[in-house]
Amino acid sequence: MMRFIAGRVLYGVFTLWFLATATFFAMHAVPGDPLASEKAVSPEIRRNLEARYGLDKPLLTQYGIFIGNMLQGDFGISFTQKNRSVNDIIREHFPISAQLGVLALLWATFGGVVFGAVTAYYRNRWPDYVSVVAVIICISVPGFVFAALAQLAIIGLNEAVGKDVLPVAGWEAGSFRHMLVPSLVLGLGTLAYLTRLMRSSMLEIMDADFVRTAKAKGLATTRIFWQHQLRNAILPVVTVLGPAIAGITTGGFVVEQVFAIPGLGRYFVQAVQQLDYTVIMGTTVFYGAFLIFLVMLVDILYGLIDPRIRLAPEKLRQKGGPV
């Protein structure tokens, strides 16, 4: 087990290094000049600016400085918002994204497991048909469409009731009303995906030999469900938790935009659109580290649940996940 964990950690560190390097060189490969947006700068100011952002040094030196700063957790200063450091931006806006994401992940995993198990039990009866159709629709409709529809629905609801039952957009720290619909929208795609996964794995498990053994042992149906079926059926769901988290994180970019939520995702998208290099690099590496850490955690968790994986770690990640 220790070897397994050590292997995972090493792998995660390597992936993170790769991501940081890729980010750095991607940013320097961008055609055009990071300072081009500065209006009519005199050569002198320009030199100052270049010195401030370290752009005057050779590329490899810049890379070394970049990696060094990353290791110290220093992401530099924003290009477009001159007096804000990237660390400040992350510190201020990431918690909002995280709250939204955690709530969405909760909806998705609990909903997925419960709906999946229930529909598997009602195989070929109407609850199953309804959920199969709902799932494929939810998988096929882009998140921003759901976000837009949800906003329309909120407006309709508010008009019907005559007062603001739910806010159409915006954010208030700690206000569950503001989180509810965005997190539902954010989790919806993953929920559908997990429902589908859970359903098929539950169907497979229901016919599994060891379930037959459990019946032959004379165990009650409920005991078979909890002790034998659920635990095994959940395994595939656990394997895709990593990709699911990644999906919810990137899905947040869209949902935060539509619902005007000041999360990190919205800032990231803005930075990308404005080519704010330091913010892009900083947030990408931050997001990368965050995702890689969570995926690592999920892998280790999976190793704990499924003894088979510890012996054959390559079994992980053979199934695709949601993007």
């Binding site: 790769f18 990593g242 990644a246 995702l291 990640r317 993007v323």
Partner: peptide, 8 residues
């Protein structure tokens, strides 16, 4: 495969 797809 393990890289965060949309981020990349």
């Amino acid at each position: 495969i393990a890289l965060p797809f949309l981020l990349f």
